[in-house]
Computed example of a mutant assay.
Amino acid sequence: MVDMEAGGVERKRYYVSVQAGQILEDPQAAAYELEVSLSEEEHIKLRELFDELSSMDEAEMFHFSHSPFGSASDGEINGGYDDLIQQIYQKLHEHGTETTKRHIESMQLL
């Protein structure tokens, strides 16, 4: 589905699974939790946040498997992860349907 903003910006409907790190165009393709309407630029930014989150997960696994007593504390690693999750949910709330916004608000993350 394609929507147009007042400024002529084209927006598409996407279906998002934060847990799986997926942004889907087809709601039948996989399970999703949230529905948003994004411009191409917003879609790219959200994808970048998910990629960063995925990279952080990989770095955390590498860090703890090779250096359980490494220099970064659990708090520092979790703080970065929490910041990214917060940014992702903020974007989803900004561009979400009313149902999506209510769901995110009920999670009390923002």
Rank of each mutant, 00 (worst) to 15 (best):
M1W: 11
M1A: 04
V2T: 11
V2C: 05
V2W: 04
M4K: 09
M4S: 04
E5S: 12
A6I: 15
A6F: 09
G8W: 05
G8L: 08
E10I: 13
E10G: 02
E10Q: 10
K12S: 07
R13F: 07
R13K: 12
Y14Q: 03
Y14L: 07
Y15P: 03
Y15A: 05
Y15R: 12
Y15L: 15
Y15F: 15
Y15N: 03
V16I: 14
S17F: 06
S17Y: 05
V18Y: 05
V18N: 03
V18C: 04
Q19L: 09
G21L: 03
G21F: 00
G21A: 05
I23E: 01
I23G: 01
L24I: 08
D26L: 13
P27R: 13
P27H: 09
Q28C: 10
Q28K: 11
A29P: 04
A30G: 06
A30M: 12
A31L: 14
Y32T: 01
Y32E: 04
E33P: 00
E33G: 06
E33D: 11
E33L: 04
L34P: 00
E35M: 14
E35R: 04
S37A: 10
S37N: 09
S37D: 06
S37E: 10
S37G: 03
L38R: 00
L38C: 02
L38P: 02
S39G: 09
E40F: 01
E41H: 05
E41S: 10
E41R: 12
E41Y: 00
E42N: 08
H43A: 04
I44V: 13
K45Q: 08
K45R: 13
R47Q: 09
E48G: 00
E48R: 15
L49V: 01
F50R: 00
D51V: 06
D51P: 02
L53M: 09
S55W: 15
M56V: 10
M56D: 08
M56K: 14
D57E: 13
E58V: 04
E58Y: 10
A59S: 13
A59Y: 15
A59G: 09
E60T: 10
F62C: 11
F62E: 14
H63C: 06
H63P: 01
H63A: 07
H63W: 13
F64K: 13
F64V: 06
H66W: 11
S67M: 14
P68Y: 07
S71L: 15
A72V: 14
A72M: 14
A72S: 12
A72P: 02
A72Y: 15
S73F: 12
D74R: 12
G75K: 15
N78A: 05
N78T: 11
G79P: 08
G80W: 15
G80N: 10
G80M: 11
G80L: 12
D82P: 06
D82K: 13
D83T: 13
L84Q: 04
L84I: 12
I85D: 03
I85R: 02
I85W: 02
Q86D: 06
Q86F: 07
Q87R: 13
I88C: 02
Y89N: 02
Y89C: 03
K91S: 01
E94V: 01
H95E: 02
G96A: 05
G96V: 00
G96D: 00
T100I: 15
K101D: 01
K101W: 01
R102V: 03
R102L: 11
R102S: 05
H103C: 03
E105A: 12
S106Q: 08
M107S: 04
M107G: 02
Q108K: 11
Q108P: 01
L110E: 03
